[in-house]
Amino acid sequence: MKGKNLRYLNESPAEKGQMIRTGFLLLEHFSLPAFTHALDTIVTANLLRPALFGSRTFGLGDGEVISDLGLVIRPDQALHCSAMQDLDLLVICGGYRTELKASDELLQVLRTAAEQGVCLAGLWNGAWFLGRAGLLDGYRCAIHPEHRPALAEISRSTQVSSEPYVIDRDRLTASSPSGAFHMVLDWIKGLHDKALVEGIEDILAFEESRYRRIKPTENQCVSAPLREVVKLMDANLEEPLELDQLAGYVGRSRRQLERLFREQLGTTPQRYYLELRITEARRLLQHTELSQVDVLVACGFVSPSHFSKCYSAYFGYRPSKEKRLVK
């Protein structure tokens, strides 16, 4: 490996630019894999060309932060508006259990960063915090599927994508650890030459490593058109698409689509879509402070009575009886 990458280590760009300064805000229960995938890419770039990037970590306070894997990290410093003048990129690191709640102080820091021209990024559900600050209006973004309806509810002019990562101008967002890696790699590609990116890829060997995106076992027998329809459903829970629309998007007839669902998933498209929406509704009731009305709207139900009827039929009890797990 050393010999293979020696050419990158010995290369000197024609013009050495200024160091790009990156900051990572570690929220409670942040995704450690997403954070390390992003940071590893930056560290590897510095291995090949020293001092290209600087990085430091921030917390909301002065204390330690617990990751989703239970590992404790002490950030370099607490996040304040004054730190924004020293950054080129600020990455909000969220996770599956990161609570969707933003203090006024955090929102002000994010807005200050945007005003000062700092690029903003979000990992896992980090995009929600950018949306909550009003900083994703008119942008495309990626967010973990569990949190798409919640983001769509508080940032209605944001185009929430089902892609693993999105770079839209000065906003970078990723929905998974693999997406975080590819997001940062693509970002570096826009800043430096192709040789550097190839060097990072060679060292991390992402085609054979933990960075490779592995298809879920349950999707191995699902055809490409059906996978695309499921992605469309998952990305459009708040305003469900009609079956004819879904069929048209993948170049199939309504009858063909119904047959694909029946043969490959053992259910109907309508039932599958309802299960996606009702399952997301339960997650929102359990893990957020959204009201029942906000939840039913976020998941595409037309009325409280319809929502309650569907919920009761699926889970065996009314949504008002759902246990709230948020502290």
Results as ranks from 00 to 15, higher is better:
1 M>W: 14
1 M>K: 14
2 K>W: 03
2 K>Q: 07
3 G>P: 02
4 K>Q: 12
6 L>C: 00
6 L>Q: 04
7 R>C: 14
11 E>T: 15
12 S>P: 11
15 E>I: 14
17 G>H: 06
18 Q>E: 14
21 R>L: 00
22 T>N: 03
23 G>D: 02
23 G>A: 05
25 L>D: 02
28 E>N: 05
36 T>K: 07
37 H>V: 01
38 A>P: 00
44 T>Q: 10
48 L>A: 07
49 R>P: 02
51 A>M: 04
52 L>V: 05
58 F>M: 03
60 L>S: 05
65 V>F: 00
66 I>Y: 09
67 S>F: 10
78 A>W: 01
82 S>N: 03
85 Q>W: 05
87 L>Y: 02
88 D>G: 03
91 V>Y: 04
92 I>K: 08
94 G>H: 15
96 Y>N: 15
96 Y>P: 09
99 E>C: 11
100 L>F: 05
103 S>C: 09
111 R>T: 08
111 R>E: 06
114 A>M: 01
114 A>E: 01
116 Q>T: 11
117 G>C: 07
117 G>D: 08
118 V>R: 02
119 C>W: 11
121 A>K: 03
122 G>T: 08
123 L>G: 13
129 F>W: 13
130 L>F: 08
130 L>V: 06
131 G>A: 13
134 G>K: 12
141 C>M: 08
142 A>G: 10
146 E>I: 10
153 E>T: 07
156 R>E: 09
158 T>R: 04
158 T>M: 07
160 V>F: 06
161 S>N: 09
162 S>C: 08
163 E>K: 06
163 E>W: 03
164 P>K: 07
164 P>S: 11
172 L>Y: 11
173 T>M: 12
177 P>F: 02
183 M>E: 05
185 L>K: 09
189 K>I: 06
194 K>C: 14
196 L>V: 14
200 I>A: 10
202 D>V: 12
203 I>G: 04
203 I>T: 09
207 E>M: 05
207 E>A: 10
209 S>M: 08
214 I>N: 00
217 T>N: 05
219 N>Y: 04
225 P>M: 14
225 P>F: 14
226 L>G: 13
231 K>V: 06
232 L>H: 10
234 D>C: 07
238 E>M: 14
238 E>A: 14
239 E>F: 10
239 E>I: 12
240 P>Y: 03
245 Q>V: 13
248 G>H: 06
251 G>S: 11
251 G>D: 09
258 E>C: 15
259 R>W: 11
260 L>R: 10
260 L>C: 12
262 R>A: 15
267 T>N: 12
269 P>F: 06
272 Y>F: 15
273 Y>H: 09
275 E>F: 01
288 T>K: 04
290 L>Y: 07
294 D>Y: 01
296 L>D: 00
298 A>P: 01
299 C>N: 06
300 G>L: 02
302 V>C: 02
307 F>K: 00
310 C>V: 06
314 Y>S: 05
316 G>Q: 05
317 Y>K: 07
317 Y>N: 04
321 K>V: 13
322 E>Q: 09
322 E>K: 04
323 K>C: 09
324 R>V: 09
